[in-house]
């Protein structure tokens, strides 16, 4: 992101695998953190610690200084499940069946790829935009 500062925007869409224990609750937790202005901070903590059970997520909320009772209430009430489900429906509509899947200015990149591949696609997209 820093390499392309000012020229690249990242948009995160949820695509929790339905048979994994904590995929959906983790996605919902980021949305619960988002309404309190800490989406990316929660995202980073999850990526760093890898523990995604309910207690760990509440621990991250505490660490980030969120309103924990609200976070907990919304998580337990599955308030943000419809948002996660809408992203899943979109992914299925686009025939995406694997995570991570990336779309860079319309170009699809499936799976974890070397950074060079991302540079190649981003540079191509930038060149195309500059030509227009």
């Amino acid at each position: 992101m820093q390499e392309y500062a000012g020229r690249l925007k990242l948009v995160l869409k949820h695509y929790p695998y339905r048979y994994r224990d904590y995929s959906s609750i983790a996605a919902q937790a980021t949305e619960a953190a988002k309404v309190q202005g800490k989406f990316w901070e929660m995202h980073d903590l999850m990526m760093e610690h890898k523990k995604l059970d309910r207690d760990s997520l509440i621990g991250y909320a505490q660490e980030l200084g969120l309103d924990v009772p609200r976070f907990q209430r919304e998580l337990d009430g599955k308030v943000y499940l419809p948002i996660v489900d809408a992203d899943v429906a979109l992914a299925k509509k686009l025939n995406f069946f694997q995570t991570p899947t990336f779309v860079i200015n319309g170009q699809v990149l499936v799976g974890e790829r070397p950074i060079e591949k991302f540079r190649e696609l981003i540079d191509k997209a930038l060149a195309k935009v500059e030509q227009q």
Partner: peptide
């Protein structure tokens, strides 16, 4: 990233 960035990268992610 900036709202008007020329390149937009979507990531469909499972945590």
């Amino acid at each position: 990233g900036p709202t008007n960035a020329p390149v937009v990268m979507f990531e469909f992610l499972d945590f």
